[in-house]
Amino acid sequence: MNTLLRIALVLVIIGAINWGLVGFFQFDLVAAIFGGQDAILSRIVYALVGISGLYAITTFFTPEKVKM
């Protein structure tokens, strides 16, 4: 697994945790850390998570290497 894919997956996991917090507790952790949903840093994090999710889709189309 290359470095870019690892970074993308970490950001996807962060996004999933944030959405879980929003769904269960109505608490947006990214917004709380970076100053609200409209703050530029929050929007950057949201954009990076979205781009990472799109990039992570490529894992479905990459053939697996068989290790022996």
Rank of each mutant, 00 (worst) to 15 (best):
K67A: 14
V22Y: 13
V49W: 01
L29A: 05
I40V: 05
K67I: 14
P63E: 08
V30H: 05
I17L: 11
R43D: 00
L21W: 03
G15S: 07
V22F: 11
L54Y: 02
G50S: 09
I33W: 05
L29M: 05
T59P: 08
V45S: 01
K67S: 14
G53F: 00
S42L: 09
Y46M: 07
L11N: 06
I7Q: 06
L48N: 00
A16W: 12
T59K: 10
V49N: 02
G36E: 09
L54G: 09
N18P: 04
L4H: 08
S42V: 07
A32F: 02
G20C: 08
F24P: 13
V30L: 05
V45F: 04
L54S: 05
L5C: 13
A39F: 02
I44R: 06
Y46T: 04
A31L: 00
K65D: 12
I14S: 12
S42F: 09
V10T: 12
G36A: 13
L4I: 10
L29S: 03
L41G: 06
T3L: 10
L11I: 08
G35T: 04
I57E: 15
L9Q: 04
V30Y: 08
D28P: 00
F27M: 08
T58Y: 13
N18D: 06
F60H: 11
A56Q: 02
Q26F: 13
L21V: 09
Q37W: 03
G23A: 14
V10D: 15
I44Y: 06
T3E: 08
V66M: 15
G35V: 02
D38R: 08
Q37P: 09
I44C: 06
L5P: 07
F27A: 04
T62K: 12
A8I: 00
M1F: 08
S52P: 02
F27L: 09
G20N: 05
V66R: 15
L54A: 10
I51D: 04
M68N: 15
T62W: 15
V45D: 01
F25W: 11
A31S: 02
A31N: 01
